[in-house]
Design a protein around this nucleic acid. Structure first.
Lengths: 340, 340
DNA sequence: AGCAAGTGCGCAATCGTTTTCCTGCCGGAA
DNA sequence: TTCCGGCAGGAAAACGATTGCGCACTTGCT
């Protein structure tokens, strides 16, 4: 319905209004607010009073137009906003917000056209920087068409160009934490069940796990790493297989918490005590999985929020013209619960 | 030939550059681009060529400063960005993106101070509208301090002021779908296990469930609704209780998928066949729960993405000065899998 | 030829700040 | 008294676009 238009449109006060009320020129009013320039304390106070009186707040767009800084960064997520990118996003938003910077959200859904389109939009809005995050940890090609126009930080999925700034989780460290925790509780026959071999996350974690074991003159139990998918169902199936081919396995290190949960389910239902007889360690520390498992999972926390925070800090540095290019790895934490 | 621009491409081309290259005034160049005003076809073409040549794109900030529209909306989420607000957010971003509008993300973490702060920021940036979303479905007080300055749409958590625009899930509809599906498969003794009684979501779903049953001259089985928390552990415990006090129960309708999963676990481990002997229906259609349960859960999908989309559309209407105040309810879908 | 009605396009104001330049004015030194 | 340094604050030019107004030049009609 066509209601009565807002006649009482109380338009916000401008600096001109403030200056008029304070009896000074706009230039002086501006200087009074920014603290630059010299003026009598009394004059400055008159301006401040007027600001108070009119509830004046500067128009960001006008400021940005003049200074060229928009105090805005774009956050492009390539793969929806899933379980992984959300904490990253929050961490970044938090760190940026402290610096008075706001976040423009773009979801490309993995579509190159859409990515280009959003990129164009961000440039049109003169963002000060861009954070690119993906769900997978596989490297991705850098954004095309923005040669140095604005700084970019890649998160979770590093850029294939080592000259770019990338922030990722230190998976080698995560695997070390898990394996050494298991070793510390006396386990020696450790099987590894994980996701698809063509996922970097799965392949890398398997590799790092083997490396850490090798340092202790051990090998993966039950043959090589067991690649499947990231599901509970796969965890259940894989556990059955391992129990069959290597019944003396005394620990499972799993590529994520869903697999780990599936493994514990199979173990419990097979009458194998966890952690008494076999220990299980997960990866990701996904609360609703890790806590609901029986028993609750000991698991590697990749601290996604911290990753987001660090990415934001690196971006701020780059915006301030002192970028630190390269791959930044963020340490993991081991969350010890009951399963190992 | 793209010779000269490659080296000097330091700053983006402005309309002035375009006008100079085309040999016209800025005003004419502007009109050539906007399509307004009359001019010789040849002149327009010269401008268009210059735009092409210089890769010109208008500066949004300058446009906004003049027109007063920022083509930006704020999206405030009050409670982190969880499982519920994320799909809403994506739906909104999608619908708004189609209208060339970008989304500024703000996370208040349920803190009133932070909310005020973000609100202030959004106003300073002259957003065209604001979407407010919360995790809980309980009503919330409207944003304070923005008397009609910009339109606001509340999502998931409706505003306590009925004159505001709110978009929520139609929970009565969701409960009807679930209960009538159970009735359709011949169940008559339906128990209800749900979250804390002080959560609107739990209380309402229990109420609606009873209402639908009453329409069929039935009552909740195993006494009144069983309130607890939203966890699997509660689902497991509640199922045990129900099996004990009302062993002839033939269906469970649960307040969310986690509870439902807990219920199926207890049933399976007690040797009760699902759905052969007892049927189970969940709520939320949270994939990683519903699909991983044994058997996979039949559950109510609240279509959060659609809710986000609709919220965005309502906001666009309001921005265009034809708001439709009140509570808008979005229908649910029943996703039938194996548990009922 | 003369006049009105149209075209095509430039000029300049505008949006709200920031920042540079410049002008008074005051006091102190010569 | 005159000159100069320094401080307070005003005028105005940016920033990059949009748009109302009006000037010059065509055209069409008598």
């Amino acid at each position: 319905m066509s209601g009565p238009d807002r006649t009482i449109m109380k338009t916000r006060a401008t600096l001109t209004d403030v200056a008029a009320l304070a009896g000074v020129s706009v230039g002086t009013a501006s200087r009074a607010l920014s603290g630059t320039g010299r003026m009598r304390a009394e004059t400055r106070q008159r301006v401040l009073d007027a600001v108070q009186e009119l509830d004046f707040r500067p128009n960001q767009q006008a400021q940005s137009l003049h200074t060229g800084r928009s105090w805005t960064v774009g956050l492009m997520t390539t793969d929806g906003i899933g379980r992984f990118s959300t904490p990253v996003l929050l961490g970044a938003e938090d760190a940026l917000g402290a610096g008075k910077i706001s976040v423009l959200l773009c979801d490309t859904r993995g579509d190159v056209i859409r990515e280009l389109h959003h990129l164009q939009n961000l440039m049109d809005r003169r963002v000060d920087g861009i954070i690119v995050t993906g769900r997978r940890t596989d490297p991705r090609p850098p954004l095309s068409g923005i040669q140095d126009a604005v700084p970019v930080v890649y998160v979770l999925s590093p850029s294939t160009d080592p000259a770019d700034i990338s922030v990722v989780s230190d998976e080698a460290h995560g695997c070390r934490l898990a394996v050494e925790h298991l070793l510390g509780t006396g386990r020696r026959r450790i099987a590894h069940v994980t996701g698809p071999a063509h996922h970097a996350a799965a392949a890398n974690r398997a590799l790092f796990t083997e490396q850490v074991l090798a340092e202790h003159s051990l090998e993966l139990w039950a043959g090589r790493a067991h690649f499947g998918d990231w599901s509970e169902a796969w965890g259940r199936r894989a556990a059955e297989t391992v129990l069959r081919i290597a019944p003396d396995t005394d620990a499972f290190f799993c590529g994520n918490d869903q697999i780990a949960r599936g493994v514990t389910d199979t173990l419990r239902e097979s009458g194998v005590n966890v952690p008494g007889h076999v220990a299980v360690v997960g990866y990701d520390n996904w609360d609703s999985m890790a806590l609901a498992a029986r028993p609750p999972l000991t698991t590697v926390d990749v601290d996604l929020t911290e990753i987001g925070r660090i990415a934001a800090l690196r971006l701020l540095e780059a915006i301030d013209n002192s970028p630190s290019p390269g791959l930044h790895k963020v340490a993991c934490r081991l969350v010890v619960r009951d399963s190992a």
